[in-house]
Simulated scan of single mutants.
Amino acid sequence: MIGLIRAQAPAILCGQVEALRFPLWDVPPSDATYALRWHEGHLELMPLYEKGSIWVDFVGGALAHRRKFGGGRGQPVAKAVGIKGDYLPRVLDCTAGQGRDAFVLASLGCEVVMLERSPVAFLLLQDGLRRAQEDAETATIATRMSLIRADAREWLDAAVQAQPSSVAVSPPHLPSPNEGASFDVVYLDPMFPEPDKRAKSKKEMSAFQTLIGGDLDADALLALARKLAGKRVIVKRPRHAPWLAGEKPNFVFEGESTRFDGYLPTQ
């Protein structure tokens, strides 16, 4: 059970939380395990009976350090999506999570559209984007990032059906093919309930992973992504994890603890 502690929370946030059918609390009920709260100017997720909290911070912390000293175009994720010379691909991030890779790509000049189906992750991402838009150092980067709350499998399927070769009409919550359903790269970083997933070693991430859960339908995303991508599909995986959907990639970029499996389009 999760809700928003209403103390000091902006009215617009309370309205968004209610629209997503989360309760507003003055005091969390005894059976609640997690809560969203407004704290020091940002929205955060916190477990009620453990230490630690999660919020999306594109302005400071680890992402600020990565933006300034992370290696720029030399980073594996930049090489994986194909940034080179004047070429800056348009990227669809189907499993946005906390938006870290999306922010890195946007900081390098790519336009990135993020999909996130979890209402909790969506709210945290939305708040992180708001603060990035308000900060002088990250405002320009944030203009290259957009966020859609949608189930990636449904969104991809509808976007594929709405391609110019099809007579299908995209649903209202999808951009039409002329408004944004054309992407050079489709990026997948599914969350799996695997014991060797490196992020699980960080205690402060446990609440986020528990609430978001594993992307158990991730295998189905690959075939759809390959139909939509103009240039390539990139799948981020733990370095020793099996291939997504058992499909051998066309090329691979290795990182220290992760790898980026590349697949060519099939349309």
Score class of each variant (00 low, 15 high):
residue 213 G to H: 06
residue 181 A to K: 06
residue 233 V to W: 06
residue 242 P to Y: 09
residue 215 D to N: 11
residue 183 F to R: 08
residue 227 K to Y: 04
residue 251 F to T: 11
residue 221 L to R: 01
residue 173 H to V: 08
residue 168 A to G: 03
residue 239 R to I: 15
residue 205 M to K: 04
residue 177 P to I: 03
residue 236 K to T: 11
residue 164 P to M: 04
residue 212 I to W: 06
residue 250 N to H: 15
residue 212 I to N: 08
residue 157 D to R: 13
residue 226 R to K: 15
residue 160 V to I: 10
residue 164 P to K: 02
residue 163 Q to H: 01
residue 159 A to W: 07
residue 159 A to P: 03
residue 233 V to I: 11
residue 183 F to P: 02
residue 231 K to Q: 13
residue 186 V to A: 11
residue 165 S to G: 15
residue 240 H to G: 05
residue 191 M to K: 09
residue 231 K to G: 09
residue 166 S to H: 02
residue 215 D to I: 09
residue 167 V to W: 06
residue 173 H to Y: 15
residue 172 P to G: 10
residue 183 F to W: 04
residue 166 S to V: 00
residue 170 S to E: 11
residue 221 L to E: 00
residue 176 S to N: 02
residue 184 D to V: 14
residue 201 S to V: 13
residue 169 V to W: 06
residue 226 R to D: 02
residue 229 A to L: 06
residue 227 K to T: 12
residue 205 M to S: 01
residue 164 P to H: 07
residue 183 F to G: 01
residue 177 P to D: 03
residue 190 P to M: 01
residue 240 H to M: 12
residue 186 V to F: 06
residue 175 P to I: 08
residue 192 F to E: 11
residue 217 D to G: 15
residue 229 A to M: 00
residue 159 A to T: 02
residue 237 R to L: 05
residue 250 N to C: 14
residue 214 G to E: 06
residue 189 D to N: 10
residue 243 W to F: 13
residue 218 A to G: 10
residue 205 M to C: 04
residue 224 L to H: 01
residue 201 S to L: 10
residue 164 P to C: 06
residue 178 N to Q: 15
residue 204 E to C: 11
residue 199 A to W: 00
residue 176 S to C: 12
residue 220 A to M: 14
residue 210 T to I: 14
residue 190 P to C: 02
residue 242 P to V: 02
residue 179 E to Y: 07
residue 194 E to G: 08
residue 218 A to M: 00
residue 216 L to K: 14
residue 181 A to T: 15
residue 233 V to E: 02
residue 164 P to I: 03
residue 162 A to G: 13
residue 181 A to R: 14
residue 249 P to V: 05
residue 197 K to C: 04
residue 161 Q to N: 04
residue 245 A to T: 04
residue 247 E to Q: 15
